[in-house]
């Protein structure tokens, strides 16, 4: 199944992750992978969501856009997504 990454710019506070993952579970959207980290010198974070590129992609985007803490959404196509599957290599020791 073709995949795509959604890059989100979000407000950096403790509830944001729950809002986003909660959205996926209650709408029945599949979330294949998630990476998140704070932006340097700002009150924002970036979240990278690995999702399937299918019919539900449009709904996923429009529902995410409704979340108050989600400020920007960008679709990243054609990038190398292997990082999602090889994160364990970064933390061997």
């Amino acid at each position: 199944m073709k995949k795509v990454v959604l890059e989100l710019k979000v407000n950096n506070h403790s509830g944001v992750m729950s809002h986003i993952t909660g959205l996926f579970s209650r709408r029945g959207f599949n979330l294949e992978g998630i990476l998140c980290g704070p932006e340097k010198n700002s009150s924002f974070s970036r979240i990278y969501l690995l999702v399937n590129n299918n019919d539900t992609l449009h709904q996923i985007q429009s529902q995410l856009a409704k979340l108050y803490d989600v400020l920007e959404i960008r679709i990243c196509k054609g990038n190398d997504f292997s990082v999602f599957f090889e994160i364990d290599k970064l933390f061997k020791s």
């Binding site: 449009h58 709904q59 429009s62 529902q63 856009a65 409704k66």
Partner: peptide
């Protein structure tokens, strides 16, 4: 008024 209703 809600864009996410499009084609839902």
């Amino acid at each position: 008024i809600d864009k996410s209703e499009l084609n839902k």
